[in-house]
């Protein structure tokens, strides 16, 4: 697409390139143009607009939560989201499940020469709207460009800072015997939606990624269930990884029930077809909550009342014996162990 025929989306006159070129990362005039045309147009906050070498933030009260994450998804745009939304939601969610109120983000872009500037604008616009949804401000950023073939369109790294309110002590090592295990909704939606768009495995589905910032869901949950012990967002490695990490760190076991796992029929069907285990598939807008039994119903009700938690479900409980293990009661009533994914999920031959 040329810049001239795209008045509504790209009104800057005389833009020289419609694709990212190496010069956009060179630190000179082209870099400046990219910064002003693309990034500053989306992110109008005062801190970023000052263009200092560092964002200087106001004094923050309380313990700080600080996290970073790199995003390399392929394809860049998928049903229900894109790398921009993912990059904001992912870091916001890492802060939120630590009990923090997410406040500030930085974003670093590694762009591949040849990326369409309109695609970059879509990514940045998606980051802007997701940041707004999550109530965070993007205050610092950087862009580098690498030669064609040395990256996959765009890589985005986001770093986030949040403040943990007084009295919140969520920890992966705080699960206790008798706690209830809850998930905030259907599992595997993101992983299967992205899989469905991968070259070589495209299949028709209306399934969308669940990619979303969870800070407001966490607030709603913790308001009704303030004694919640641990939260995790089961992203890469899926629910299995989150539960194994909690069981190991808390020196407890976790028993879940296959029949209680909330699953969309399309996700189940894709798992059957490709021989995948939904417990290992990534989610980008779900959390798993370890809640004392006395607050479990309140926690579920709080999630059900939130748009991102409508399909929340109780899936199991925490026990003392077999410390470190996660077990699953299978659909026929037997018990098997749940382990972390080793490497990558590889589809079976038949």
């Amino acid at each position: 697409m040329s810049s001239d025929d795209d008045g509504a989306w790209c009104p800057i006159p005389g833009r020289q390139y419609d694709r990212v070129v190496l010069g956009h990362g060179g630190g000179g005039l082209l870099s400046d143009e990219l910064l002003r045309d693309v990034f500053l147009r989306a992110f109008r906050g005062d801190t970023l607009a000052k263009l200092e070498d560092s964002a200087v933030l106001p004094r923050l009260a309380g313990r700080l939560a600080f996290t970073t994450d790199a995003f390399v998804v392929h394809p860049l745009f998928f049903p229900g989201g894109d790398i921009g939304r993912l990059a904001v939601a992912g870091t916001v969610n890492d802060l939120a499940v630590a009990g923090a109120k997410p406040l500030y983000l930085s974003a670093a872009f590694i762009l591949e020469e040849g990326l369409l500037l309109t695609d970059l604008e879509r990514i940045v616009e998606s980051m802007r709207s997701t940041a707004q949804e999550a109530g965070v401000e993007l205050v610092a950023g950087d862009t580098k460009v690498v030669e064609r073939g040395k990256a996959d369109g765009a890589f985005v790294v986001t770093t986030g800072i949040g403040v943990v309110p007084e009295g919140r002590t969520l920890s992966v090592s705080a699960a206790e015997e008798g706690n209830a295990v809850l998930v905030s909704g259907t599992l595997g939606d993101h992983g299967v939606a992205v899989l469905a768009r991968r070259e070589g495995l495209e299949f028709e589905t209306t399934l969308e990624s669940d990619c979303a910032p969870l800070a407001s869901l966490v607030d709603a949950l913790l308001e009704r269930a303030p004694s919640t012990r641990a939260l995790r967002d089961p992203t890469r490695g899926g629910l299995a990884s989150s539960l194994v990490e909690i069981a190991a760190a808390s020196r407890v076991s976790i028993a879940i029930d296959e029949a209680q796992l909330p699953l969309r029929p399309e996700v189940r069907a894709a798992c059957e077809l490709f021989g995948l285990d939904v417990l290992h598939i990534a989610n980008e807008g779900k959390l798993v909550a370890i809640v004392p039994e006395s607050e479990a119903d309140a926690a579920l009700a709080a999630m059900h009342a939130h748009p991102l938690g409508r399909n929340a479900a109780r899936i199991g409980k925490v026990a003392a014996e077999r410390a470190g293990q996660v077990t699953l009661r299978t659909s026929i009533g037997a018990v098997r162990v749940v382990t972390q994914l080793s490497g990558e999920q590889l589809p079976r031959i038949c």
Binding site: A248, R336, V337
Partner: peptide
């Protein structure tokens, strides 16, 4: 995952008596 060793490794329960460090 169709191989017997991997299937046992991924899904078999350890004996109840094993402590976490043994596990």
């Amino acid at each position: 995952s169709e191989g017997a060793c991997a299937a046992y490794y991924e899904h078999r329960l350890l004996p109840l008596t094993q402590t976490r460090s043994e596990a």
